[in-house]
């Protein structure tokens, strides 16, 4: 598998109005995203995770360092608008506010918007739009007014708009942050399915720990730097490190971790409540067995 996005030694500070020296939003960040993987980027507000997403989707230009998309350095001096457009055909982005990224009044026309920009013949657009709506489970709503949908449905429409363009990688910039629990689940299920079944590379930026558990890899950002990087099991089995930067761990992991500290011999890399319960039961059984003997 090749690398779809690489960032090398990325540094960026938002310009300030009064000329004061700004704190770097990103400091020497190195990261590479494998094609077909599901990477969750976690971090607090101001950790630089959204800035990183905007760099990778070429919305912002780094102060120094490079963003490389499918082997092409997009931060080089000779990059043209054409190159940027080409890269954007590969990497799409779904934003936080569902209302501010839907362009058209009718659902299917919004999904078609991006594809229309590519200059594809009309019949093919129709086909791609229908396919994209089916993949996010919104076929029923094709002719509905977009403003009447729920938050989760709007985000799924936005996702359909991205996949209709046949992109290989989708960056979700806190796309679940403004949704209610039901909407969040709808969107998460869609994201996971797109990654597993359609092989789309997913970069999911979030501050919900539970959402990061679906990922193959978790990157934790703090103060503009990569703080931790590993599989969800590796990252969440070190709760103190996460607590240090005021992040939570999934409740199941926290429970198991505290039990272990209090002397119960359990694994701490379990996220599913059912598995967690089984593990605790198992451990307690072992304990009574020992006592029985």
């Amino acid at each position: 598998m090749g690398k779809i996005i690489e960032v090398k030694d990325l540094t960026f500070a938002y310009p300030t109005e009064d000329g004061e020296a700004a704190r770097n939003a990103l400091e020497h960040v190195n990261l590479s995203i494998e094609e077909g993987s599901f990477v969750a980027i976690l971090g607090h507000n101001g950790s630089g995770k959204s800035t990183l997403a905007k760099m990778m989707s070429l919305v912002l230009v780094p102060d120094s360092g490079a963003v490389i998309i499918r082997g092409k350095n997009m931060s080089a001096d000779d990059v043209t608008d054409e190159d940027v457009l080409k890269a954007r055909r590969d990497v799409g982005m779904v934003f936080q506010n569902p209302d501010n990224q839907i362009v058209a009044t009718i659902v299917e026309e919004d999904v078609a918007f991006g594809v229309e920009n590519l200059g594809i013949p009309s019949e093919k657009i129709r086909h791609r739009v229908d396919e994209a709506l089916r993949l996010v489970g919104m076929t029923k709503y094709a002719r509905h007014m977009s403003h009447k949908l729920s938050g989760g449905q709007k985000q799924r429409v936005a996702i359909a708009g991205v996949i209709a363009m046949r992109r290989k990688c989708i960056i979700f910039d806190e796309s679940t942050a403004m949704l209610d629990p039901v909407g969040r689940k709808e969107v998460m299920d869609t994201i996971v399915r797109l990654n597993r079944e359609e092989g789309i590379t997913v970069l999911h930026i979030t501050h919900y720990m539970n959402e990061a558990m679906h990922a193959d890899r978790v990157v934790v950002m703090d103060q503009g730097k990569v703080f931790m990087d590993g599989t969800p099991e590796e990252v969440f089995s070190q709760p103190e490190k996460l607590w240090d930067i005021r992040l939570d761990v999934p409740q199941t992991t926290e429970l198991l971790y505290l039990l272990k500290q209090n002397g119960l011999n359990v694994r701490t890399d379990i996220f599913e409540p059912a598995e967690c319960a089984a593990e605790i039961a198992e451990a307690m059984k072992r304990m009574t067995d020992v006592r029985g003997k």
């Binding site: 919305v59 457009l85 954007r88 934003f95 501010n100 990224q101």
Partner: peptide
Amino acid sequence: ELATAMECRCYT
């Protein structure tokens, strides 16, 4: 935000 989103969807 809408302008950014449109740009990301290759609108030119």
